[in-house]
Amino acid sequence: MLKGTSACAGCSSSLSLRYVLKGAGPDTVLVIPASCSSVIQGIYPNTALNIPVYNIAFAAAAACASGMSNAFRAVGKKTNVIVYAGDGGTLDIGIQSMSGAFERGTDFLYICYDNEEYGNTGMQRSGSTPLGARTTTTPAGKTDEKKDIDAIITAHDPPYLATACSAYPQDLFKKVKKALAIRGPAFIHILVPCPSGWRFPPEKTIEIGRLAVKSGMWILYEREYGRLAISSPSKAAMKNPIPLENYLAPQGRFAGISPKALDILKQRITQKIQRLTEEEKGIC
């Protein structure tokens, strides 16, 4: 990734892409559906990416990558095929082709960079927007909960699945390396705080990511051939999470969140910590 992208100041999805590409190396093709990254990569005839980038229609990324991977493997090429899709392109409009590609065992890495909104069209609600968050289509705060895409993909039993966050670059880098070393479909779900949409100052983009992890609102882990391992930044956080308010307060999108919504968010954190702790210990 070259200097001079057209991303917003403080954009952590472009940061994440930089780490992903560092981990992937030059023999890589990116497949990007409609999303912020369609714009971030630059405007023709310029590009900020020094690997091939294939732009494709919104719902089509996984299927396009599926064809690409098959064509490369058919002629013995090991080129990494990486989908870099937003939360809309993954768990809303793109879920069908994504599910199909995982079910077919496609040899690729699917990355969902999750800014919990339709960022490219100006911060509308997505299936990934958390309960209580204001967006331009949920001006009073979202009344539905965030869709658990990780559970949906886990149900496809992929050889590798991980969560990551732009605020933990080394953790992300290692997970990309691991995912690409595995044959078959791999999934990495990166939480990417969005200053423009979440309404916090651009310079706080790393801090917000860290607060998400420390509060337990976002938990870093990986599931390799079904076996769960909590990643080290989350290990400490899960034992002793900071108050959720510390994560929500700096973000304009949660301003005026109802006590009821706040309570549900807190309950979900407790439940998720318990569920993952038990799964890691082999209790469930």
């Binding site: 497949v31 294939y54 494709i56 229609a57 719902a59 089509a60 990324a61 996984a62 299927a63 396009c64 990558a65 599926s66 064809g67 690409m68 991977s69 098959n70 064509a71 490369f72 493997r73 058919a74 002629v75 090429k77 069908q96 082709s97 599910s99 199909g100 079910e103 077919r104």
Partner: peptide, 27 residues
């Protein structure tokens, strides 16, 4: 000796052909 991808929809059928064709493969 082709790769037959049994996609889950026609939208994906054409998307997969696009991805494969983009590598220079006959589709």
């Amino acid at each position: 000796l082709s790769r037959y991808i049994p996609v889950e929809s026609e939208h994906s059928a054409m998307a997969a052909c696009i991805g494969a064709s983009a590598t220079g493969a006959r589709t």
